[in-house]
Design a protein around this nucleic acid. Sequence first.
DNA 1: ACCTGTTATGCAAAGGTTTGCACAAATATT
DNA 2: AATATTTGTGCAAACCTTTGCATAACAGGT
Lengths: 341, 341
Amino acid sequence: MAVTIVHVAAKAGVSPSTVSRVISNDSRISQKTSRKVRKVMEELGYHPNTLAKSLVTKTTNNIGIVLPRPADELFQNQFFSEIIRGIVTKAASCGYDVLMTTGASPMEEVKAVERLVQGRNVDGIVLLSSHKDDTNISFLREKKFPFVLVGRSEDYSDITSVDNDNIAAAYSITRHLIQLGHRRIGFVSGPMELTVSKDRFDGYTKALLEAGIAIQDHYVFEGTFTPESAAHIADQLVKLEDRPTAVITIDDVLAFGIIRSLWNNGLRVPEDCSVVGFNNTSLAEMCLPQISTVDIGTYQMGQSTVQALIQHIKGDGFEQARIIIAHQLIWRDSVRPPEQS
Amino acid sequence: MAVTIVHVAAKAGVSPSTVSRVISNDSRISQKTSRKVRKVMEELGYHPNTLAKSLVTKTTNNIGIVLPRPADELFQNQFFSEIIRGIVTKAASCGYDVLMTTGASPMEEVKAVERLVQGRNVDGIVLLSSHKDDTNISFLREKKFPFVLVGRSEDYSDITSVDNDNIAAAYSITRHLIQLGHRRIGFVSGPMELTVSKDRFDGYTKALLEAGIAIQDHYVFEGTFTPESAAHIADQLVKLEDRPTAVITIDDVLAFGIIRSLWNNGLRVPEDCSVVGFNNTSLAEMCLPQISTVDIGTYQMGQSTVQALIQHIKGDGFEQARIIIAHQLIWRDSVRPPEQS
DNA sequence: ACCTGTTATGCAAAGGTTTGCACAAATATT
DNA sequence: AATATTTGTGCAAACCTTTGCATAACAGGT
């Protein structure tokens, strides 16, 4: 039915091998035949069958992604679409397509990865969501199959990962607030079992201690990414007699929630309290006051991930490495020096 | 290197054909051999080579998606991640993976689609972003290649598309506002060349006329999805002497921007003016007041898209159809009856 | 005219499955 | 007991490429 390389060969009066070599720009093919063959390809509307090609070259020019499950922390809308965009765009520009799969349960997810890898469907894999002691990781590592991990870099030393330095980012923010004159600085984290929560907290701690400021337990809150949680925390904040003059939150949503709830309690941001967010979502820019936040370079993370993965696949002089994407502090209206008191 | 079907066959003492039939649960295989073969497969850690299989069956169990370009309207974060999630989840549950590609330019995009189709890499295609007179559409249609269009349903009658009924949704909202007693109702659209803008406007118009209310040109605004645009429109709104008592916006972002800007001008929502959004993004729920909006069922659109596509691929009794996903009005704090005046 | 060295092309095997058809064995029918 | 039917398995071709090796053609040097 479909036009194959043999049809082209026949019509051009050459052998299939020659056509194949024309396609791959083999240097040994003469100008003349090359032109002739290309013309026929055009006429016949020939397109190589990728499957057959992959079968013999053992290479698919596909990279696989396992979609995080909805419950997963990584499925924060903003993060997800940005990183996918980074991945697909970079992949496309390198001649790769992206094969996405998912599993309803952790077990099915492992099955899916196995199928991708063993079925020779992809040349490499991006692990977007990963747990501690991830079965996927040990599997891929054992198979020596090229893969790159996004996030969680410090849990594994011998595999390639792309991450941002959450410790450094939180440290910079905290330092900046201190330099502005803040001494009572609150911290609102997400669930502490998330690495990002922990890391950002560590950065906060580090900056405080370095400045000779003691960590106050009652300035540290553990929340979830819901408005309710934010409201609850804000209520507690308001009740404090030695209320912080600035609050660092681990996500723009939290920052937004806190700002709103403080406001409900008659406190203004930034006049009465500065608030900083994280992740530079559109929310941060959209609301009033515009929220100071950290751009963690999600799009670029996607790009770098693919770049590393492709190097890994190609294998030329590739070494495992932790790749750290630079963050950028974005100062907006929600922060100012504390009132003199 | 890798273990193939012949290895399994040899070790199990049967022919490759038999192993193949065991895998596909062919009814003619006896219980005994089936068990024996499965055991060997397990022992050897055999996984079928998908490529080889696809080559002969001419079926890949992949569906293709062309990622919209960043500039594209469809790449609104919320919409994008939700629909992708719907698509990938449904696909996975039907045994399909999703192959994503993209093109930096429209021309490259067409190339990418051609490659996917002609290279026999996917069994069907989801067109997420489409323009009027889309080259991809005519190409796929001509090739008789299974595909489903998301959105833009009314531009084409003979192809399958999944969409929500924007006219009906806007109509319902408007009607509801009228029933609450509103007579002066504003409408804030996105760029009018977008079909969604036009459709939602039509629904608005229909409801008004039906209620015997004339369309007032100065109540209709054309904006973009930026806070600035919203602010600009709000300024105009405030200046009107016969200011609307309610405003319908075409997107939650716009609603949010309008609410904020009205507020800056000393007007309260919903006390001084009701505001309705669209798309039920997390923003609508998060801000104060919580915004009444329309859930257009994006996740479900993704699911239905895949379902239709797979039916199309399987081809059993399939007919082209426009599939309309039900919307749901979500009433929250930003709406109330108008002040008696 | 002969040999050497390039340069351009073809042959055939390999890659791992599926599947129509033929066949052998086992069971049922008379 | 002989034949018909069912059941289970194997053979070999087909799917479409790529690529190592062999070979043909041709040029240049003597």
